[in-house]
């Protein structure tokens, strides 16, 4: 008699427990026992003590409340952030920090996108980079020193490898150093092959700037420069985090580059070891191909040329 269960609380509890455990077993417990839930990319490395300390701070400050760390395999999302996330990238993430809300941008591909200095400055004053950003300032992390013993015990808890030098090297570093170190390691284990398929390096179609000297283009270029370039290359191209654009050194060698090289660097960004006109880049310049249209990039170049003439 099925109705009896409604008179027997213990039996009722047992039956409810079984009923809830069916879905739990199929979607959670059983997959957990299979390798599909434990993939690892070949070149993925465990966090170093400094990076783990940074990740702890990321957790402590609740960064995951506003930033996701997973790029979905959707066309515009890959264009905006880069290669979509792979299961094997997260083998050392205890816990995962994919997040559920993008009040700020996704960070799955933030590693090595900008130079360290960019992060230091941006954490200290996000509104110096983006006037209307609503991100809290994290300058207060500077000068808060790390506790090497504490971090060592965290490494031990996770069984991550480290050397005595790694630990002693932590003294003198502060929380900001750690957080930046973590930023730079997020999402760099993924191979870039698929990403470059989605986003091929573009060569300039015109060898020379079609908008060279155009007054309107220079004005538009100035506006774009202030919104996109000034935070790194400084006011009027004087250089800051990024190199000066008005001296005569480009990609660490004397002598100017041609318009089409400028175009390619702005459009594609630079990466370590990339060669442009026989000069080797060290990386740090992000790609602007998704933010600027072709004529906008040419306008920025017109503006830079106008600065160089002054």
């Amino acid at each position: 008699m099925a109705g009896a269960i409604y008179r027997k609380p213990i039996l009722f509890a047992i039956v409810s427990a079984i009923v809830i455990l069916i879905g739990t077993a199929v979607t959670m417990f059983i997959p957990m026992l299979t390798p599909q839930m434990h993939p690892k990319l070949e070149n993925l490395k465990p966090f170093t003590p400094l990076q783990l300390a940074g990740r702890d701070i990321y957790q402590r400050e609740g960064c995951n409340n506003c930033h996701t760390q997973t790029v979905r395999p959707l066309k515009t999302e890959v264009m905006r952030y880069g290669e979509y996330s792979k299961a094997g990238e997260f083998a050392y993430d205890h816990p995962f920090l994919w997040g559920s809300k993008r009040t700020g941008p996704d960070l799955a591909r933030i590693g090595k996108k900008y130079p360290d200095m960019w992060h230091y400055k941006h954490f200290e004053d996000p509104r110096a980079f983006f006037a209307e950003s609503n991100m809290p300032s994290y300058g207060w992390l500077k000068g808060r020193s790390l506790d090497p013993e504490d971090i060592k015990s965290h490494m031990d808890a996770l069984s991550f490898p480290y050397t005595a030098d790694d630990i002693s090297g932590l003294s003198g570093k502060d929380e900001m150093d750690a957080l930046v170190a973590y930023m730079q390691v997020i999402g760099i284990a993924v191979t870039k092959t698929a990403a470059s398929e989605a986003k091929p390096r573009v060569k300039a179609e015109e060898p020379e700037n079609p908008l060279a000297g155009d007054q309107k283009a220079i004005e538009l270029g100035e506006e774009l420069y202030e919104g996109n370039c000034e935070m790194c290359h400084g006011e009027h191209g004087k250089g800051d985090i990024g190199p000066s654009l008005v001296d005569n050194i480009f990609l660490y060698e004397e002598g100017d580059l041609a318009d089409d090289d400028y175009f390619e660097i702005i459009n594609n960004g630079t990466s370590e070891g990339m060669v442009e006109e026989g000069r080797t880049a060290k990386g740090g310049m992000p790609s602007f191909s998704d933010q600027m249209q072709k004529n906008e990039i040419w306008s920025v170049i017109s503006y830079i040329r106008s600065l160089q003439k002054k």
Binding site: R72, P73, L74, K75, V78, Y84, E197, A198
Partner: peptide, 10 residues
């Protein structure tokens, strides 16, 4: 698969 669907879309 979502990966195949992505490859199609690009």
């Amino acid at each position: 698969s979502q990966e195949k669907a992505y490859e199609e879309s690009i």
